[in-house]
């Protein structure tokens, strides 16, 4: 396996090099879950405000 490390601090700053997709998978998953949480939050707030202020008019 390939190890990726910082020359000035190899003990603390080293990781297994899993390639581009493998290395960036964790930050990407974190951002995706955060985006999902934000989406749910927005939907909740929109739903809450919709119910507070207006009731959808029935279709004719």
């Amino acid at each position: 396996m390939i190890v990726l490390y910082l020359a000035d601090n190899p003990q603390q700053e080293a990781m297994i090099d899993r390639g581009f997709w493998g290395n960036w998978a964790i930050p990407a998953i974190l951002f995706l879950v955060a985006a999902f949480a934000i989406l749910l939050l927005v939907l909740m707030l929109r739903g809450g405000s919709l119910q507070k202020t207006e009731i959808p008019a029935p279709y004719v």
């Binding site: 396996m1 390939i2 190890v3 990726l4 490390y5 910082l6 020359a7 700053e13 990781m15 090099d17 290395n23 960036w24 964790i26 930050p27 974190l30 951002f31 879950v33 955060a34 949480a37 934000i38 749910l40 939050l41 909740m44």
Partner: peptide
């Protein structure tokens, strides 16, 4: 939900910066 999202974004940014530094200035070894 807001707190959860903020924590995730902060951890994501921290991880990304660390990884970007490793990938740009780091060395590779077997």
């Amino acid at each position: 939900f807001a707190l959860f999202a903020v924590i995730l974004v902060c951890v994501g940014i921290y991880q990304s910066m660390k990884l970007a530094r490793l990938e740009s200035t780091g060395l590779r070894a077997d």
